[in-house]
Every structure is written in C-alpha cells, then in structure tokens.
C-alpha cells in the first residue's frame, strides 16, 4: 500500500516536471530526475512522449489567439451592437 502510494507520488512529480519542461521552466536537476524516472516507468514514458508530441504540434501549427483585453473590447462592441439591434 505504502509502496503504491510512493510510486503514485513519484509519477505525479514526474508528470509535473514533464509539464514544466515543455515550457522550459524545469531545472537541470529536475530534468535529470525525470529522465531517471522515465527509464523505469512505462506510463510516464507514454505521458512524456504524448506531451512532447503536443508541444511540437503546437509550435508547428503556429496558432494565434486574441489577447484578453482585445476580446473584452470586442465583447463590449458586440454587446452594444446587440442592444442597438434589439431596440
């Protein structure tokens, strides 16, 4: 039971570091620990591989979105237009 909990905790930590490393926010030591964990853990290897694929695709697609402030302005303009149309 205790061992199982320790494994789960280790996987949780590994996934967290894996997420951080996708944004280049993981330290060198964290990455070393992650790679060591990945040698033994098949589930985390799969998660890590999918995570990397997602990062690559996001970079490759070069998707863009509106900033929050831009959306707010757009929302205000549209709400105004909706009200005008209703009157």
């Amino acid at each position: 039971m205790n061992t199982q909990m320790n494994i789960n905790k280790a996987c949780e930590k590994a996934n967290h570091v894996c997420d951080k490393s996708q944004y280049k926010e993981a330290s060198f030591l964290e990455k070393v620990k992650l790679n060591l964990h990945l040698i033994f853990c098949k589930a985390c290897r799969k998660y890590s591989s999918n995570n990397q694929k997602l990062t690559k695709k996001m970079h490759h697609a070069n998707v863009e979105c509106m900033h929050k402030q831009e959306k707010e302005v757009l929302k205000q303009n549209l709400t105004k237009a909706i009200k005008e149309q209703q009157n």
């Binding site: 863009e64 979105c65 509106m66 831009e70 757009l74 929302k75 303009n77």
Partner: peptide, 28 residues
C-alpha cells in the same frame, strides 16, 4: 460568439492576411 469562436476566427484570418490589427477588424 466571442467566447466560443473569436479565437478560431482570428486564427483563421491571421493565417490568410498576416496582420494582427486587420484580423481583429475582420473578425469584428
């Protein structure tokens, strides 16, 4: 509309006109 489609429409537009301000105007 804004919450559901603004990002999708914006991305669709910017990939065709390559201008952020113009894309915002076209979406609006």
């Amino acid at each position: 509309w804004i919450d559901l489609y603004s990002d999708y429409l914006f991305n669709y537009t910017i990939s065709r006109v390559n201008d952020r301000d113009l894309s915002k105007d076209l979406v609006q």
